[in-house]
């Protein structure tokens, strides 16, 4: 079961969010079956401006991570259906590259080493102090994009999430924010069809009004921009399902 927790309304941001200002609107996945702790973590992160999804089972976490471009995942090692370390390993083997903060119940060196060597980026020992949680989240989100998997490419298209810059064939491709977010999503999910609903969730807040053809319009404009810039990939429409970024064959560009 996935609980999509809520987004801070536009405008008022708490003071503590200053150090997170460059990653606001980022989405974080919390994987823990302790509902009290999950609620505490969710509340803290939402107050800092993040959108938080939470799941209790490893299988749900895998599905969520495959479908959503998370900025960070917080994974407890003691999950009911699978060992959390297995989940981390599985995510890495599926090229899910978002930073992972592992929650461990004991401060044993071997647990920490095993977690880090299986693909986690950092760990936090339970019980933890909330300021330490905030600090570790901030540190992971500050990492250079090459370490966070935020420097993405398909064919001759490159997307850098940190600088919010897109490039085609080495040249800058200036895009409005929504089109940049759309391109990033499609690049992250290259060769996979991205459902329209997922695009809506990524581009618009829950309170935004989205007209019936908003997504089609954004896709149309982005497709034109890519074509004009000489991109060697295009956005394919799967009618009734969604969109997919596919590399063009030689001669198609």
């Amino acid at each position: 079961m996935m609980n999509v927790a809520g987004r801070v309304s536009n405008g008022t941001m708490p003071d503590e969010s200053d150090e997170f200002s460059d990653v606001l609107q980022a989405r974080i996945l919390v994987v823990d079956d302790d509902r009290d702790l999950t609620e505490l973590v969710r509340r803290e992160l939402v107050a800092l401006g993040f959108t938080v999804d939470s799941v209790e089972f490893a299988e749900d976490a895998l599905m969520a991570a495959r479908d959503t471009a998370y900025a960070l995942m917080i994974v407890d090692l003691g999950l009911p259906d699978r060992d959390g370390l297995e989940l981390v390993r599985d995510m890495r083997s599926r090229m899910i590259e978002a930073p992972i903060l592992v929650l461990t119940a004991r401060n044993r060196v071997e647990d920490r080493v095993t977690g880090l060597s299986n693909g986690a980026d950092d760990y936090l020992v339970k019980p933890f102090a909330v300021p330490e949680l905030r600090a570790r989240v901030a540190a992971l989100l500050r990492r250079p994009s090459r370490l966070k998997g935020n420097h993405l490419s398909v064919a001759n298209i490159v997307v850098d999430r940190d600088s919010l810059e897109a490039m085609v064939a080495g040249g800058s491709l200036p895009l409005p924010l929504k089109q940049f977010q759309l391109l990033e999503l499609l690049v992250r999910r290259k060769n996979h069809v991205t459902p329209k609903r997922m695009i809506e969730e990524a581009l618009y807040g829950y309170n935004d009004e989205v007209s019936t053809n908003s997504i089609e319009a954004q896709v149309y404009k982005l497709r034109q921009a890519l074509r004009s810039a000489g991109a060697e990939a295009t956005i394919e429409t799967r009618r009734g399902i969604g969109y997919r970024l596919v590399e063009l064959k030689p001669g198609e560009a």
Partner: peptide, 21 residues
Amino acid sequence: AHRLGGAAGTFGYGAISSAAL
């Protein structure tokens, strides 16, 4: 005890957390 140790300490119940662990 394992779960209680992690949660109680985080919520500020240090003595419960220590006893649970």
